[in-house]
Design a binder for these strands. Structure first.
Length: 281
DNA sequence: ATACCGACCTGTCAGC
DNA sequence: TGCTGACAGGTCGGTA
């Protein structure tokens, strides 16, 4: 589901709402697919911890945890008991992490419920189960660079000598982290570059435009609360509005907003790629 | 070392 | 009213 702007939106909402709260108890469903760490380890690591901060690393949600207020804490085998554990949530395609009232209906595909000291609940729901839950001792690093923090020099260096299509390179989280299918297509359109162009074939000028386009698209999308296509909502259940600003994504067969040429779709790396054959070279 | 391609899942929607 | 197939915001691991 979510790419960098959606995750950023969720994280901002969560940080505002649950930072300072504690996790009193954790329920984990029976499906193992969404668990990257063993269920018992996740539960014992989260229980009794205070949520210090919620932030983002690429498409990962990172909840910084700290030992709670000291009452009746028991050290259990296999848990990450040191004060600086991190809870990592990747939403995959359809994952949602939401703050809920305990009275709210427990929807199908709910895989984890964390009861908070404030009386609310943090719930992880994911129908397709491509999302992943895990715990780390601290210093979680998914690799790759943050597109909104990287310098233009380093951005250019990421693609040097790569024969892969530029679209594939943009989707590679080990290079740039956080860009997914929608924002890759939108960035390439704005930069006037076709998705199939070999990364190494891009000129300095191409890369300069792409660098600017990626940052503009991501910043604008964050400002609009992300893109809601079918079911994306943020931590408060609010939809984003950037889907209204998409210029090529999902517009196959429609006219290019710039030149009125018909927008085309091709499949690259198993993913749909949308582009304007006239505006993108 | 790099690059495709299917696999992992469920849900929805279009077409027959 | 079904049934079938294509497609969906993402990643991983095997193979070429």
């Amino acid at each position: 589901m979510p790419e960098l702007p959606e995750v950023e939106t969720i994280v901002r909402g969560l940080d505002k709402r649950v930072s300072g709260d504690t996790i009193d108890s954790v329920w984990i469903g029976s499906r193992k697919q969404p668990l990257k760490s063993p269920a018992a380890k996740i539960a014992t690591t989260l229980e009794g911890k205070k949520i210090v901060r919620v932030h983002r690393a690429g498409k990962h949600i990172v909840l910084d945890l700290e030992a709670g207020d000291g009452r009746k804490r028991v050290r259990r085998a296999g848990s990450l008991s040191q004060s600086n554990a991190q809870w990592i949530v990747h939403l995959g395609m359809t994952g949602r992490l939401m703050v809920c009232d305990p009275a709210a209906e427990i929807v199908k595909h709910t895989h984890l419920i964390a009861k908070l000291g404030s009386g609310r609940e943090l719930r992880f729901v994911d129908p397709r189960m491509f999302g992943k839950l895990s715990v780390h001792s601290s210093g979680f690093d998914p690799g790759g660079v943050e597109p909104l923090e990287v310098s233009e020099e380093r951005f250019r260096a990421l693609f040097r000598g790569r024969k892969t299509p530029i679209k594939s390179a943009l989707l590679n989280q080990k290079l740039l982290r956080g860009v997914g299918n929608i924002y890759a297509d939108e960035s390439l359109f704005r930069a006037g570059i076709r998705p199939r162009r070999r990364a190494a074939s891009l000129s300095k000028g191409d890369l300069h435009r792409l660098y600017g386009a990626v940052q503009d698209v991501l910043r604008e999308a964050i400002a609009k609360g992300g893109s809601s296509i079918s079911d994306y909502v943020d931590a408060d259940g609010e939809e984003g509005f950037f889907q209204l600003e998409h210029r090529v994504y999902g517009r196959e067969g429609e006219q290019c907003l710039v030149c009125r040429t018909m927008v085309k779709r091709l499949v690259l790396v198993g993913r749909s790629s949308h582009y304007c054959p006239k505006c993108q070279k």
